[in-house]
Nucleic acid binder design. Structure first.
Lengths: 228, 228
DNA sequence: GTCTATAAACGGATAGAC
DNA sequence: GTCTATCCGTTTATAGAC
C-alpha cells in the first residue's frame, strides 16, 4: 500500500513531466514507465489505460487549482471591492503562480496550455467538465464589472483573455520568436501578472468597435496629421 | 510530370488538412496517402521524409502570407498614416482573412496555431527562420507608434498579442469552453478583426504598471466606493 | 514516377506467474 | 502489487519490379 502509492505517484509525476514536454500523443507509456523506473504493466494496473492516466494527471492539480481561483473570487466579493483587475488576477494568478514552484507545478501549467491543442475528444470533454464550476462563477462576475459591454462582445474578449493566459502558461516555447539579442529570461510569475493584468484590463475595457469607428471619423477631421 | 505535380499537390493538400485537424505527430503518412489516394512511397519520393513534407506544407503558404503582411506595412508607411490599429491589422489581418476561403486556407491557419505547441525542435527552428523577415520589419514599426513604451514592456505586450492571435487562429477547439447556450458560431474574419483590434490596441496602449499603481492609490482616496 | 512488399522499430494492452 | 513475456496493430522508411 505504501509502495503502491509510491509507484502511483512516481507514474503521475513522470507522466506530468513528459506530457508537458512532448505532448500527450507523443509520449508513450514505455517512456513514462522507464523514466519512472516502474514496470510497464503498472500503468494499466493503477489507471486502467493511457486515457485514465491522462485524466488522473489533470485532475490531481486542476481541482485544487480551480478551488483556489474560486476562493479568491469569494474573498473579493466578501470584501465588496470587486474590480476588473482583481477579477483578472483571481482568474489567471493561481495558474501563473503555480508555475513558480520548481517542482511539478510549472510542468503542469505548460501541460494545461497544451491540453486544448491536442486532438482527443475525450480530453476536451474532460476539460470542459472540469472547468464547469469555474466558468459559471467567473462569467457573471465579469458581466457585473463590465455592465456596459454587450454579451457577445464580452464573450469574445474573455476568449482573447484566455488566449493570452494559455500563451503565457505554455511557457516560452514560442516566446523566442521575438527575442532579440539574448534569450527571453524566465520572469517571476508576479512580474508577468504585473505586466499582463493592465494589458488585459485595458483590452476588456476598450471602447466598442462602433464607438471607435465614430471616434475615428471625428479624429480624421480634427486631428488628421497626428496619428496614434 | 503533369501527374507528378498533381500527386505532389494532393499530398500537400491532404497533409495540410490532416495536420491541422489532428496535429503533426498524430497524423501518419499512411493516413495522408490513403486520404489523398496516392501511394505511400510517393511521400518519401517527393519530400524525402515526413519532416520534409511538414516543411513543404508550411512553406507553401507561409511565404506568400508573410509577403502580404509586409506589403501592407509598406503601404501604411508609404501613406505616412501609420497608426497602431493599422499596424495590428496589417499583422493579424492576412492570416485571419486567409481563414475565410472555404479551401485550404482555414486549415492552414489552424495548423499555424498548432505549430508552436507541437514538440519538434526542427519545427521551432523552421518557424523562427520563416518569420525572421516579418519580425524584423514589424518590431521597429511597433516601437515607432508606441515610443513611450519601455522596450521590455513592448516585448511582453507583443507576446500577449501573439497569444491572442494564435488562440483565435487555432479555431474554436477550445472556444466551446465559454459557449453558454448554443455553440460558438464561426464568425467572419472581418468580424473577428473588428472585435480584436480595439482589444489589442487598448492593451498595447495601456498605462504602465507603475503609473497604474500610482493612479490606483489616488483612486482609492477619491473614488473608493465606485470600483471598475 | 508509381507501384508492391517488406524491413525494423514502436505503440497500447493483457495473460499469467509470483 | 509487481513482474516477464507476448499479442497484435501501426509507424517510418526503403528495396526493387514495372
Amino acid at each position: 500500500m505504501a509502495e503502491a502509492n509510491d509507484t502511483k505517484d512516481r507514474i503521475l509525476d513522470t507522466a506530468e513531466h513528459l506530457f508537458a514536454e512532448r505532448g500527450l500523443g507523443q509520449t508513450s507509456l514505455r517512456q513514462i514507465t522507464s523514466h519512472a523506473e516502474v514496470n510497464l504493466a503498472a500503468v494499466n494496473y493503477h489507471f486502467g489505460s493511457k486515457e485514465g492516466l491522462i485524466k488522473a494527471v489533470l485532475a490531481r492539480r486542476l481541482e485544487p487549482l480551480n478551488r483556489e481561483r474560486i476562493r479568491r473570487l469569494d474573498r473579493l466579493e466578501r470584501q465588496g471591492s470587486i474590480t476588473l483587475e482583481g477579477l483578472i488576477e483571481a482568474f489567471i494568478g493561481p495558474p501563473l503562480e503555480l508555475s513558480r514552484d520548481g517542482g511539478g507545478g510549472s510542468r503542469f501549467v505548460r501541460l494545461m496550455g497544451r491540453t486544448y491543442t491536442e486532438h482527443a475528444s475525450f480530453l476536451h470533454e474532460h476539460m470542459r467538465h472540469a472547468n464547469e464550476a469555474l466558468v459559471s462563477r467567473f462569467k457573471p462576475a465579469f458581466r457585473m464589472v463590465l455592465p456596459e459591454l454587450p454579451k457577445a462582445e464580452l464573450y469574445w474578449r474573455l476568449h482573447f483573455l484566455l488566449g493570452v493566459m494559455s500563451y503565457v502558461m505554455a511557457g516560452n516555447d514560442m516566446m523566442q520568436l521575438l527575442a532579440s539579442s539574448r534569450n527571453a529570461e524566465l520572469e517571476e510569475p508576479r512580474e508577468i501578472i504585473r505586466r499582463v493584468v493592465p494589458f488585459l484590463a485595458a483590452g476588456l475595457r476598450a471602447p466598442l468597435p462602433e464607438e471607435l469607428a465614430r471616434m475615428g471619423r471625428e479624429a480624421v477631421e480634427t486631428d488628421a496629421m497626428s496619428p496614434v
